[in-house]
Design a protein around this nucleic acid. Structure first.
Length: 491
RNA sequence: CGGGGUGUGGCGCAGUUGGUAGCGCGCUACGUUCGGGACGUAGAGGCCGCCCGUUCGAGUCGGGUCACCCCGACCA
């Protein structure tokens, strides 16, 4: 392992440097040979797999099935829906040729100019177009509806500035695409899925999120409405953690997808789409982790318990006792590693597993062996306790639940302590730079929204649900405002 | 695309007025260690980003080129 473990930058010194270092030092991901694209390493990918596993089950419980659509999309598909083109054209990767050949001097390869594609292909930045082109063939009657498909895949958006997990040119996600007979049904599905995401984020990732509706400028290209979950990072910035879109009949019209209703009349289909990505891993890191490294919620931790023996030459007794504990924990469905490697000293292992965010650590030395005890440490608070060996499995099981709850509560109190109602623009301008969510009255115009962004780089994240709205006065324009919106600087 | 910076063992860096490459970490082997990031001994590992020039001689000087990083306009 060439990974340099010492000297993680402190959050207070340089938050974004802390983040970048942590991603690498905790062995989650590394820079690849391709600009803007990262390698997700096994430890990082294991987190994604746990997310996938849980989300996939949640989707299926609502009747969704998985399918797979092509990576490459005919360029012409993109011109069908005007706003959609505009939204993605600037960052589309285009395949123009299908063959390479050796250069004249045989030292390299070059694109064979005779192998030009008649119709260029786009590497999917999202799949609405290819999917709606396909759905056209699947949908003829009201009996064919609804269609509830999801796909797990990669997408590519040619980004100018990238950051591991938060924004990379290629990323992994799931995209659900549904087709319905009525607007009400499609709208209901859109809302259902944002609630699935919110539930998943809070219960599984321990991320408190604000649900809401995007403003017109922030909504998905081609959608009539976008719902979002917004999480607050430890630097007070907002991170859009998942979105669900009500697409109306835009794609049905663009791809001419109609069905015959019960009166034998042709009707355009209504649609939703929704997605979360590997960005959630970035959200996890920036919400829970500390200056010692990752802090992972037990439910997504690739490794939930690590057991470390401290012995001298003769480890046989410790191997026996700790091996049994490991086996018992595994029987309970807890993932455990018994690390009795003799080439690292205990202190090194402590630091290393803390950096990697393993929620619980058990330690046993000869002293414990005599006393029948074991040391148990929780990663979230770094508290250590020496407890009897009897019943350790139950204690660990309970502790994992406590940690899950504790880091959620901790994140929630942090978030709640940094949500402010603000009615004064001058005050807003000075305070928003320090982070936090600002709930401010908005007159609903794109002009004031643009003004706020130009002045402060902060944007309207959403109009929050679950918030008792009052009428008031827009702090920028002074015009009447029907409700407050959530404004923050964001990733 | 503007502005700034960096390219030297796996990683982080040093390298004087040009003289043929070094340090720390990591790695390999053996031994001693092991209750919070161990130590000793012996090793392995480098077209100094690439090309052209100046020179007896270039990591070092000049020109070009490529790549990456940081800061600004776009974004899940």
């Amino acid at each position: 392992m060439a990974t340099e473990l010492k000297d993680l930058t402190k959050r207070a010194d340089d938050y974004s440097r802390w983040y970048n270092e942590l991603v690498v030092k905790a062995d989650l991901a590394e820079q690849s040979a391709v600009r803007g694209c990262m390698v997700i390493k096994p430890y990082g990918y294991a987190i994604w797999e746990k997310m996938q596993h849980e989300l996939d089950a949640m989707f299926k419980k609502t009747g969704v099935r998985n399918a797979y659509f092509p990576l490459l999309i005919p360029k012409s598909f993109f011109s069908r829906e005007a706003e959609h083109v505009e939204g993605f054209a600037k960052e589309a990767a285009v395949v123009t040729h299908y063959r390479l050949r050796a250069t004249a001097d045989k030292t390299a390869v070059e694109v064979d100019p005779t192998a030009k594609l008649e119709e260029e292909l786009i590497i999917r930045p999202t799949s609405e177009t290819i999917i709606w082109n396909t759905y056209k063939g699947w949908i003829h009657s009201w009996r064919d509806l609804p269609i509830l498909c999801n796909q797990w895949c990669n997408v590519m958006r040619w980004e100018m500035r990238t950051r591991p997990f938060l924004r990379t040119s290629e990323f992994l996600w799931q995209e659900g695409h549904t087709a319905h007979a009525t607007a009400e049904e499609a709208e209901a599905r859109t809302q259902q899925m944002i609630k699935v995401y919110a539930d998943f984020a809070e219960r599984f990732l321990a991320l408190p999120v604000m649900q809401g509706v995007k403003s017109e400028t922030e909504r998905f290209a081609g959608a009539l409405n976008t719902y979002t979950i917004e999480a607050m990072m430890q630097d007070g910035k907002a991170l859009q953690a998942g979105t669900s879109h009500f697409l109306g009949q835009n794609f049905a019209k663009a791809f001419d997808v109609t069905y015959l209703d019960k009166e034998n009349k042709p009707q355009y289909v209504w649609a939703s789409s929704w997605g979360v990505s590997t960005r959630l891993i970035g959200a996890l890191i920036m919400t829970h982790s500390d200056d010692n490294g990752l802090v992972l919620p037990p439910k997504v931790a690739p490794l939930q318990v690590v057991i470390i023996p401290i012995g001298g030459k003769d480890m046989s007794k410790l191997d026996e006792k700790l091996g049994a504990i490991a086996a018992n924990l595994e029987k309970k469905g807890i993932s455990v590693k018994y690390d009795n490697a003799d080439n690292k000293r205990p202190g090194f292992k402590f630091a290393d597993y803390e950096l990697k965010g393993v929620p619980v650590r058990l330690v046993m030395g000869n002293r414990d062996l005599e006393n029948g005890t074991v040391e148990i440490m929780r990663r979230d608070t770094l508290e250590k306790e020496t407890v009897p060996m009897e019943g350790i499995e139950e204690r660990v099981e309970k502790l994992l639940d406590d940690i899950q709850a504790n880091i959620y509560n901790k994140a929630k109190s942090f978030r709640d302590a940094h949500v402010y109602e603000c009615d004064n623009y001058e005050e807003f301008k000075t305070r928003v730079a320090d982070g936090g969510f600002f709930l401010c009255h908005w007159d609903g115009t794109a002009e004031t929204e643009a003004q706020i962004k130009a002045d402060t780089q902060a944007t309207i994240r959403c109009v929050p649900f679950d918030f008792e709205q009052t009428e008031g006065v827009d702090m920028v324009s002074g015009k009447p405002a029907k409700y407050r919106v959530l404004i923050a600087r964001s990733y």
